[in-house]
Design a protein around this nucleic acid. Structure first.
Lengths: 150, 150
DNA sequence: GTATTCTCTATCTCAAAAGTTGACAATGGG
DNA sequence: CCCATTGTCAACTTTTGAGATAGAGAATAC
């Protein structure tokens, strides 16, 4: 699962992408329309601006905007920045590899072999989706099937 | 990321799959070879046996074995049982759908639309991989590239 | 009956996630 | 120059859930 912070970051960035080229967007504007605790959002936006994908200006009429055109920011980038990795296990991360604790030898680990495949499939998708993409929300009904017994 | 518990469950099930048809496997056998804290493993195996995918017998020569042939257990099943969902956000789960906290209306949420696609891709992969599959571990070197700057 | 092995509920510990506080710095307008 | 506005940053608190353990109990084999 993505952390709440990562989800906030994604929505904030989508908001900034929607308003790209419209000058600085104040934090409270993002916080209110995106339903994100304002103070917490400052932490998130500061983090993103340290990576250069968000720019900011202080003072009157200040605010935030994308430091990079929306077409150059993929959802894969965003998740990696916030979470460090797209992988489901630390040892299957391409850019933030770590050995898993209490595991078997990595060279013998079948779980890892599987999770590398999952990571690649996920990365293929997310690295092809950009903040500039027009995305049609899916009606809420979809995804509401009954719980399967297994 | 998968929880440690889910990873333990996967390795334990692989272990049982390897020894399928060889009678009850004692917990300590699994715990030792798979490097899983024994007491914690009891919790995991009890949970799995409540779902029927693991069977057990108490007393001398007791132990655990797969309640279902390894070809009938997919990795997707396993992860759903342990974690409830393959999705990256609660609202994108097919079998354990929940609305996300502090989010926008689900029908307007673009993040959800994306994550539904990711869930489907992940499910396609994991539901096609079975405990009976022969899986070749990937040498540890792969996945050790330098960290990208973004 | 005794050693073995699983069962179950309760509990503990601890790190990370989520969120807040408050002092500070830049900017623009009067 | 002063003041309102808006971002910056480090420290801190709170909450949550994961991970792990404890311990009494029940089945089974010998």
């Amino acid at each position: 699962m993505l952390s709440q912070k990562t989800r906030y970051a994604i929505r904030a960035m989508q908001h900034l992408a929607d308003k790209y080229g419209q000058g600085p967007i104040p934090l409270t504007d993002i916080a209110e329309t995106q339903n994100i605790p304002a103070k917490f959002l400052t932490v998130i936006l500061s983090e993103l601006s340290r990576y250069g994908i968000v720019a900011s200006q202080r003072g009157k009429d200040g605010g935030y905007w994308l430091g990079v055109p929306p077409i150059d920011i993929t959802y894969g980038d965003l998740i990696r920045v916030m979470r460090g990795s797209l992988a489901l296990v630390p040892c299957a991360s391409r850019f933030a590899h770590e050995t898993c604790k209490n595991c078997v030898e990595e060279k013998d680990c079948r779980t890892r072999a599987l999770m590398l495949q999952v990571r690649d499939a996920t990365a293929n998708l997310l690295d092809g989706m950009r903040l500039s993409d027009r995305i049609d929300p899916v009606p809420a009904a979809e995804g509401l099937e009954a719980v399967e017994d297994l």
